[in-house]
């Protein structure tokens, strides 16, 4: 095992005039849980597909486990797993048949397959459903089965493209429990996600926007890099409050979270300025908060990178 599991150098992908990925460079250590965060169209799926060897890059290179993703694809395919964004299962095959099929395609030996199947069915809790057709599973179970299928050949690096999009919160937690088990077994995870709470579970996060790497670091580093301060405001009527705050000098942006407003601003005496601006409205609560990754992300999406 090399000391770098995934080594990406100036990776670039264009479709005609459209630049999907602009010179991405990243180095990921073995055993990391690396998250790719960004809005739709940021280039997350393109990166995933490039690293899984499905797409050829326009320029640059990528090495996984020391092997070139494009030139040594055949040797590498046995050592990596890739789960596309859409659950890729055969709905008209049973749970056991799906597992058997993927084991066979990867030429997993019979003894190894039986051992692996028992393990995966146990930790995904799919054992009671082994003879059920995959199309009759719930969304969360389907996605666990898809993961189990990509794990049949015991990959060392696992690429997961938005693995929990469209899955209920309970199943998501369950899914992460399985992922942590894998990490404990030494598997390197590279996943993309639109969810901030999921990004917070990663050892490191790369933020992508319009095909460019905007920021990379641990979730803590990213949050610490935020410029200005965050205030949480609860006021009534909320729309009027939001309009007034947005117009206030020194305010970068105002985001709505339910009935709460997150205001990011640079003003020195922030609380006083906000209170003055909301004069005449009912101010329910005003407090300083630590920025979450969501706030960092919103700052990025609105075009202002952190310092």
């Amino acid at each position: 095992m090399t000391d770098i599991a995934i080594d990406i150098q100036d990776l670039r992908k264009t479709y005609g005039d459209l630049v999907a990925l602009e010179g991405l460079s990243l180095a990921i250590a073995p055993g990391e849980v690396f998250g790719l965060l960004g809005p739709d169209g940021a280039g997350k799926t393109t990166t995933m597909r490039l690293l899984a060897g499905i797409l050829a890059p326009s320029d640059g290179s990528a090495r996984v486990l020391g092997m070139d993703v494009f030139r040594e694809a055949d040797g590498l395919k046995r050592r990596i797993g890739y789960m596309p964004q859409r659950f890729a299962l055969y709905g008209d095959l049973t749970v056991a048949e799906n597992l058997l099929f993927f084991a066979n395609i990867y030429s997993v030996s019979r003894a190894e397959r039986l051992k692996r199947e028992a393990e995966l069915l146990a930790f995904s809790r799919l054992e009671p459903f082994r003879d059920r057709l995959a199309m009759h599973l719930s969304g969360g179970m389907k996605q666990k089965l898809a993961l189990a299928c990509t794990l049949m050949h015991t990959p060392e690096v696992l690429f997961l493209d938005e693995p929990t999009t469209g899955v209920d919160p309970v199943s998501r937690r369950e899914f992460w429990r399985i992922l942590y088990t894998l990490v404990n077994q030494g598997v390197t995870l590279f996943l993309s996600t639109p969810y901030m709470d999921e990004a917070e579970r990663c050892t490191r996060v790369a933020m992508l926007n319009r095909g460019r790497l905007v920021r990379c670091g641990t979730p803590g580093e990213l949050k610490a890099g935020m410029r200005g301060m965050m205030l949480e405001v609860i006021a009534d009527p909320m729309r009027e409050a939001k309009a007034r705050l947005t117009a206030l000098p020194g305010v970068h942006d105002v985001q709505t979270f339910g009935e709460r407003l997150h205001v990011r601003l640079d003003t020195a005496d922030a609380e006083a300025a906000v209170t003055a601006a909301l004069d005449g409205l009912t101010l329910v609560s005003l407090r300083r908060i630590a920025p979450g990754l969501e706030d960092v992300f919103n700052a990025l999406a609105s075009g202002e990178g952190p310092s």
Binding site: I54, R78, Y82, R86, F87, L89, F102, I105
Partner: peptide, 13 residues
């Protein structure tokens, strides 16, 4: 359509 082709492409097939 169901996306399994992409899954098959990443296998040694």
């Amino acid at each position: 359509e169901i996306g399994t082709l992409e899954q098959l492409v990443v296998t040694p097939l």
